[in-house]
Each structure stands twice: as structure tokens, then as C-alpha cells.
């Protein structure tokens, strides 16, 4: 992608009178770090980038922002928020529109067709991080790592993030401005990990997940980073009634993980952020993708594609499958 064009467009949008701020990516302070950038005017966009390191889903910030009650006599600031989106991020925006978490006239969506992101953990494992700021670029058949002034070409398969191997929508599904020509979608990989767990016996699955869930420290990062976990009154924060106790043990960890996954059934757009931020490396994607698979195969529904569609769990079809009912 042409960075000059990106910065030019971003500067134009950020300078608009009806835009409060623009959210994009910029280089972090060291190594492969990329940080979200918030630009209130054209100057703030001068360092914005779009590279294979821009994994973060910026749609989270649409709902993460705290909406405090206004002091008396103060007018609400109704200007729009502009943000850059990849394919998966745009699905989060579409799903937020479906749920009326945001309204179409509150956002300016700048679409970045996405050739695929690297897996940050894999990257720093294979090509250790440097103190100097390193860069990544796309080449025709992979990535180019620029570290300490040296370029290393890496084949795409080696570093491509899992969510990107499985990605079906690399091009933004909603956007006001497109920064580039759409990329050619690739054949999404088979989701073998989910199939593998499905193939286990019940006890094997229980043991597998108990092993994983027992590492959960209940930091709720997975909830906070998720663009679609934005209930103001989250059941996890509730004390009375207390849906899930705060104690960290098998029972509560499992209940919490079931609750989180279930609340995202038919809503999760598989951006992989929850799994990326989990400090305990719990493969949350394997639960999310399982539910997404059920929703797709059994109910013929895919979230985050059509802003006009009905939310999955708040709608029904008279002929929904009911073979499990006695």
C-alpha cells in the first residue's frame, strides 16, 4: 500500500470539520511494536502506517470510549469518528451497525484492503525483536522484514497469522473511502484445529479445555479488547446477582469462558484479538471459530457482513434445526 496516499487521505479526513478524530496505526517505540494513533487534526496523521504488523482491530475504540453524562448546559460533541479498517475490522464495524452499537452517521470508515497480517508472537520468536524500530513490508509472495537496516525476505506461509490463513473477507465490507484496489482473496485454509477437537471424545475435550482454562487469570483482556464486548453492565462485573464468581478456579474459569464465548456466538467476526492479547495463551479462537462454524453450517448465518441484517441471537427462523430436542 502506498503510504503517502494513506497519510494524504488520513490528513484530509482528520481535517474535516465534522470529524472529531481519526484512529489509525503508527510505529511503536521499539522492535515490531505498532501502536494505535489518534489524530485530531491533519498533523497527527503524518506518521501513520499500514503494514503487516497492524494486527490491532481499531473498531474496539469505537465502543471502548467512555460516554460520561454531560454537565448541564454543555452540548454533546456529535462529530464523527474516523477509523482505518482491515477486512476483519470492517466486519466488526458492520456487526456494530447491526446491533446499533454505533450508527452509520457517527463513523467514517477508511478501508484498507488487507494482504494478510503476520503473527506477532511467531515473528518475534523466529526473528527476535530489536531495540531499534523494525519494519515489515509485503512483497509479492511474502513479507520483508527490515531490521537494523537489513532486509530479510520471508515466505508468506511462515509468518501469516492464523486468523489470516482462515480469512474469507480480506477486503473491507463497509467503507466510505477505500485506500487501495481490493486484494485478491485467497482460498481460506481448512480449520483443522477445530475439527481436531471436535473429533475427540467428550472426556478428552474436557481435559483439553480444563488444561487451558486453568491458566486463565481472569484479567478480562479478551473482553476488553473485543470490539463486540461492549455491554455497559457486563455480567462479569455484576455482584448481585453474581453470574460468575470472581474466584479463580476450574469451575468459575470454565463458566466464565463459556459465558464469554456464548455472548459472542453469532457475533464474533474472528478478528483474533482476544487470543492475541490473552496473557495465558488460551486458544480462544478455537472456541470462537467453533461457534462461528455452527452458526454458519447449521443456521446459514454469518455475522458482520450486512449492516441491515438481524442479530443472530435476537432472531429466529421457524425451521431452525431442532434435532437435539427430545
Amino acid at each position: 500500500m502506498d503510504l503517502d496516499k494513506l497519510r494524504e487521505t488520513a490528513a484530509e479526513v482528520a481535517a474535516r470539520d465534522d470529524v472529531k478524530y481519526l484512529i489509525g496505526w503508527e510505529k511503536g517505540s521499539y522492535g515490531y511494536r505498532v501502536a494505535p494513533a489518534f489524530a485530531e487534526d491533519a498533523d497527527g496523521t503524518a506518521d501513520m502506517i499500514f503494514s503487516p504488523l497492524c494486527t490491532a482491530n481499531l473498531a474496539t475504540y469505537l465502543t471502548l470510549v467512555e460516554k460520561l453524562p454531560l454537565p448541564r448546559g454543555q452540548e454533546p460533541d456529535n462529530r464523527k469518528v474516523a477509523l482505518m479498517v482491515k477486512g476483519c475490522d470492517s466486519r466488526a464495524v458492520a456487526q456494530l451497525l447491526v446491533e446499533k452499537g454505533i450508527h452509520r452517521d457517527e463513523v467514517v470508515v477508511i478501508g484498507c484492503p488487507c494482504p494478510g497480517m503476520v503473527d506477532p508472537a511467531l515473528l518475534s520468536e523466529k526473528y527476535p525483536e530489536t531495540e531499534e524500530i523494525a519494519e515489515l513490508k509485503w512483497s509479492d509472495d511474502g513479507f520483508i522484514i527490515v531490521r537494523n537496516g537489513e532486509e530479510t525476505a520471508v515466505p508468506r506461509e511462515e509468518l501469516l497469522a492464523e486468523k489470516c490463513r482462515l480469512c474469507r473477507y480480506p477486503n473491507p465490507v463497509v467503507s466510505d473511502i477505500m485506500l487501495d484496489e481490493p486484494v485478491e482473496s485467497w482460498e481460506p485454509a481448512e480449520d483443522e484445529e477445530v475439527t481436531e477437537i471436535e473429533g475427540k471424545e467428550v472426556e478428552g475435550r474436557w481435559d483439553y479445555w480444563q488444561q487451558e482454562f486453568s491458566n486463565c487469570i481472569r484479567c478480562y483482556s479478551c473482553r476488553n479488547v473485543c470490539p463486540l464486548c461492549y455491554c455497559q453492565d457486563c455480567i462479569l462485573d455484576r455482584i448481585n446477582p453474581s453470574w460468575v464468581f470472581r474466584s479463580v478456579n476450574f469451575s468459575e474459569n470454565t463458566a466464565f469462558n463459556i459465558a464469554r464465548a456464548f455472548h459472542l456466538a453469532g457475533r464474533c467476526i474472528e478478528c483474533g484479538e482476544c487470543e492475541r492479547v490473552c496473557p495465558a495463551n488460551i486458544p480462544l479462537g478455537k472456541i470462537n471459530r467453533k461457534l462461528a462454524r455452527e452458526v454458519r453450517d447449521k443456521y446459514g448465518f454469518e455475522p458482520g457482513l450486512d449492516p441491515e441484517s438481524e442479530p443472530f441471537q435476537a432472531s429466529y427462523k421457524p425451521d431452525d434445526p431442532e434435532d437435539f430436542i427430545l
Partner: peptide, 27 residues
């Protein structure tokens, strides 16, 4: 109808995390 959809999903999820499918029924 809403219950059928939600609890159907829940049943799949419980099975996936290893809760015996014989523990949850709907009728």
C-alpha cells in the same frame, strides 16, 4: 423459537468444551 436457537448453540458449546451431551436436554 428464540430459546431453540440460543440453547441449541449452548448445547453445541457445552459439548465442545467437554460437558457430556447427556447432561443437557431440551424438550
Amino acid at each position: 423459537y428464540f430459546a431453540r436457537r440460543r440453547l441449541g448453540m449452548l448445547k453445541d458449546l457445552l459439548e465442545y468444551v467437554g460437558v457430556d451431551p447427556r447432561r443437557f436436554h431440551m424438550s
